[in-house]
Design a protein around this nucleic acid. Structure first.
Lengths: 190, 190, 190, 190
DNA sequence: GATGAATGAGACTTCATTCAT
DNA sequence: GATGAATGAAGTCTCATTCAT
């Protein structure tokens, strides 16, 4: 009866607020403690009933998938920002450093998702996955055009290296920084 | 390791056999399916009762820790072997390739343990941890002495990079091989 | 290692005792209150943990199916007993009366099972189902041979009539008795 | 039924429309899938909010009771129709056949209600219950007067038999028809 | 009056751990 | 010592009912 577009009626204000709050709390909780946190605990922290979470996300996995998709988009946004705001030739390096030092630090969600652990991003959030791949392709192309990135490198390898860097991020910040520098050196032409 | 010293009486022969069998089955199972496999399932596959596992390992985590320690020692042995049997300058590179391509491929135990996931190796198996660090130090020293590994690299960074490589190992073998080559290139002096 | 036949090792004495106790309590509870009783409640009444029930019956439905199968066998045994101990020509009538007055009274399990409500007996307990059909066939044949049961009657109709009688059993005993007499009169030749 | 008498104010037109729609959808849904269908699902199918259902019916059971009462009245109407439009002596038989073959077939609501399953019709809808008893009395009297129904039969037994017939209705139509014929034969004088 | 989001008790099920046999 | 049955505390998910919008 109310006007809605494409059959998707907009969420009521309070519902949208709750959904966002759940997503945010879920992100923080999953990032800090991993997938094993009970849904009830997330509900408690978000100040809602467990049923509310299940209204918005039919299963725990769906909640996790939503968090992951959100997080991957954020990551891609960050990369695009770096690409546009600085030296395109250095954007890939800056991106990897940012992933390791600022983002990956203790973000189980992003690390696990990129490594395909506990979730198949490509299957449950194809758009986010594509977004990430596209970004990596753009960063790679920019670097190769500028001559700062070796030519014999393609997106799949780069993605694998990103996953490797994320794993490095779990370490002490200074160690991680130095390790990342070493790894990124390998990306430059000899 | 020593027989009947310090009040530790040696296991009866059948008990020792059971302990070894459990450890082996637990390794295979955890490696293939991760920590979430029930203890009962491991008992079933090992052909023993669940109580037998608990007689040898007080908790599931202790069993996992024993598996991890065993596995890390195997890894260190492999590295030491490479160091003694071939070109010492290339041993580190050969070791990393082996870790990624032969070992890490689908070994949840090793990957997770090295990444500090689900277990703190340093805390529960300090000897294995020290063993691994020692090995990395030896591989590093040999490479630096031979001039094949950059001088501004220390064990902590190298360990972080090993972890990164393991994460890469989860990928398609060919992609992982190329990615590892890129990473190891970063280890060489410019 | 222990000798067992056909791969089915006999239940340990205590386990068998528990299993029987659970089955008995489950029968009484389901019979009195229907399928909606929680498994936890049955566990409580049987004096065991919920896990114990799930060790013997993997799902609630499996428990229910076991109860039903047991109950249907009892019913068939009763019928066979009547067939052998009295006038074969009257056995069918005696059987129907017994079902209504002694058994069906408030036995949700039997009534629902025979009516195919909440469970498909044929699917989950084919042997019990076959047993019941066989018995009905025997009762019918005996009656028809003795000339006390009309000839134009077959097992499927008889089974439907049994279900109908069971439903009657839910009523006040005296009313049910009279109603059953009327129905069984219909089974006799004119 | 009367407008605005005794403090019961008539429903606004749209509210009445909603109430009727809910009742109709609830009947269809309960008949097809039983009492276990969630209230939300009925609301969805009726195109109203769950709150609307609860405005008209204070509990799910009240909704079910209303459906049952409605349905029993329909049944009684059908019986009365048969009584007036055809041979009064055969009306009872026609009625039973209709119940089994046309109505009972897969109508969980009617079968369960008549069998006292999930609801006590006499308690929650005394008028409907009385209506049904009255009808059965009329059908019985007509048959007995015409000599087509045995004299030693009273309403309670007849009601029990009706319940039994309904249970038969769950079966394959042809089998149910034959079984009903057998049962109704029992109603005729010898 | 209508809506549908939120609630929260409770269902079924799993599994680390203990303990009688 | 070994066994595997029993325990019971979670965990995920559902749904009757309430209530803010």
């Amino acid at each position: 009866m109310a006007a809605d577009i494409g059959g998707v009626r907009p969420l009521r204000a309070d519902a949208a607020r709750n959904r966002d709050r759940v997503l945010e709390v879920a992100y923080e909780t999953f990032a800090a403690e991993g997938l094993s946190v009970p849904v009830d605990e997330i509900a408690r922290r978000a100040g809602v009933g467990a049923g509310t979470i299940y209204r918005h996300f039919p299963t725990k996995e769906a909640l996790y998938a939503a968090v992951v998709a959100h997080r991957i988009r954020d990551m891609a946004d960050r990369g695009r920002q770096l690409l546009q705001s600085g030296d395109p030739g250095e954007a890939l390096f800056a991106f990897l450093r940012a992933m390791v030092l600022e983002w990956g630090a203790s973000d189980h969600v992003l690390i696990d998702a990129l490594a395909g652990r506990g979730i198949d991003v490509h299957a449950v959030a194809p758009e986010a996955d594509a977004d990430a791949r596209t970004l990596l392709g753009e960063l790679l192309a920019a670097g190769q055009e500028a001559g700062t990135v070796r030519a014999d490198l393609d997106v799949p390898e780069l993605k694998a290296i990103l996953v490797g860097c994320q794993a490095i991020g779990a370490y002490d910040a200074e160690v991680a920084a130095r390790a990342t520098d070493v790894v990124t050196d390998g990306l430059r032409p000899r």
